[in-house]
Design a protein around this nucleic acid. Sequence first.
DNA 1: ATCGTGTGATTAAACGATTAATCAGCACTG
DNA 2: CAGTGCTGATTAATCGTTTAATCACACGAT
Lengths: 336, 336
Amino acid sequence: MPEPTKRATLRDVAAGAGVSVAQASFALNGTGRVAPATAERVRRVAAELDYQPDGRARALRTGRRSAYGVVIRNMRNPFFLDVLRGMETVAHRKGALLLIMSSDYDQEREGAALRRLAAEAVAGIAIAPIGRRGRLLEWMDRHTHIPVVAFNCTPEPDREGAASRLSTVGPDDDAAVSLAVAHLAERGHREAALLTAPEALAADWGREESFLRRCAEHGMAGDVVRGPLDHEAVARRSSEMMARPGHRALVVNSDHLSAAVYDAARSRGLRVGRDVSVVGHDDLPTSALLDPGLTTIAVEREALGEQIMDLLVEGPGTAVRLPVRLVERGSVALLA
Amino acid sequence: MPEPTKRATLRDVAAGAGVSVAQASFALNGTGRVAPATAERVRRVAAELDYQPDGRARALRTGRRSAYGVVIRNMRNPFFLDVLRGMETVAHRKGALLLIMSSDYDQEREGAALRRLAAEAVAGIAIAPIGRRGRLLEWMDRHTHIPVVAFNCTPEPDREGAASRLSTVGPDDDAAVSLAVAHLAERGHREAALLTAPEALAADWGREESFLRRCAEHGMAGDVVRGPLDHEAVARRSSEMMARPGHRALVVNSDHLSAAVYDAARSRGLRVGRDVSVVGHDDLPTSALLDPGLTTIAVEREALGEQIMDLLVEGPGTAVRLPVRLVERGSVALLA
DNA sequence: ATCGTGTGATTAAACGATTAATCAGCACTG
DNA sequence: CAGTGCTGATTAATCGTTTAATCACACGAT
């Protein structure tokens, strides 16, 4: 007869051991003064009853919480799974939990996610923000007690107030863009375009600035092309660019999108690595398999995840840039 | 001056509106009897203070919780990200949260994850279990109040007790294996091997049974090969199999592993789709890009995720099998 | 004048933990 | 024997909600 078993509570344990709840609590946490015999007895009863302290109650009372919130932009890009794995490794080590939400590139949803996580009183929030940092900082002003780490976005320049509490971590954007542009220049390119998100959603404006600056340094014509990041939109946009005369070199913000660029080239009868050049970012598993292989900027995703967690528990206001490297495959043409 | 702002509590709201906490609670939840004017006033103050009810406290009092636990086997397989997306869609719709953990193919960790989630008093648990269902059922016996759905595993045959409360959902294993074997038979194969996890970890023994049965039905020699599922181990194992004389046909449990099989073939100077045949499972993005393209069994991963959530909130004890289809590419040879 | 009856509000008891404040013995000291 | 200190235990407050149980009061009907 499966009568609905309620979870064992501390009171049950205490009763079973013939002792007060306080003493039971002390015994299990090893915090108060409790006779060895009693402690042992309490532990035995607890084990017997399969007692697990109620996380909610404990968190409510102590104020400490061992859950962290993660807000990502969307759940399509496999990039994130690796980052998540890194985070999970650290979280598991500290016995913490991960609450995962997606903002889905929607400011409204991002705000709702933050509110929700605050309501759950998480110990910290890791977020891949969308758009400018204004709203996030404003939110942080209202929740000064909860640490926030922004990842995969351009760090705010040194500032007062909330901004000083916001840690930032991600691939070294400037290095990444430099590698890409230098590689293109080396192979004879005279112009390049950076394919990125629309102004309102872009969180990595630093990349754009670096891109234009590096292009200028190499005497190349640089162009920033904005638009939605779904497959069709990217394909359409890059197709339009390929329509223009001359050789095109596209630097794409994520490998995840370069499939769309390849598609566009194919449907125009152009060959990537000869008629068009593409440089990606992230070095996803698919990138090596494309034909030709995608030349891309690699970053240690799992390490990124671990770094995020470390920053979350450690100290506020740091900006960590992870090293990147160029993985050369066949998607960049060698021009005369 | 950034004095540490504590979150606004219901008491603050009540005080601000000059009313008791009870009345404030009633007003915000629209539950008790409260004068329209008062309600309005409370709401205004709440908005002004950016009040968010504390999830922990509320959950503690009401017993209801709006967080669900997810335990996956590991965080390497991109299969999971899509499932997670499906789950997140539903969760977001119901305003629920997702707590994600990985068992990492470790029974101990799986148990710990379950305990931890129970301690957080989640509203339900979705788990991709490892190994036989015994421990899980035993655990469910001790936690009869929390619904569990197991995914990507063979359903238990009709049973009494906990088993009757355990919902199961996943790709239709029998159909999947049937498609694979039939396809191989069609293309002239006389024997095939199923590459799968070691006995102790395999959660989908139904697949193996189906495999052997279907092979027999087609007059083929069927073989089940077990071992660890990391890249090297799979490569080694398949390499050994390829050493044997005759044509080998490998049915792999996950596309994620077939890269290893391709590697093994390459290092033996064999060509997949001619000297060896491979059928995968899941139809991951990488599968279409392999050379030759991987013939595989496809399932709607996002739909799977949604289905999981639906089962979690809905009813216990159902076994849902999702439709699968064969995606034919070039990895199966056409034999004489 | 009395008795409901409704309305709008308050009080107080949970929920399951942690923890500060006490307390009852008991032994030891001056 | 009063005073002190130590040990092992208990009591009760608290965290932020929800909600059952009351309460005060005005209004209409008997």
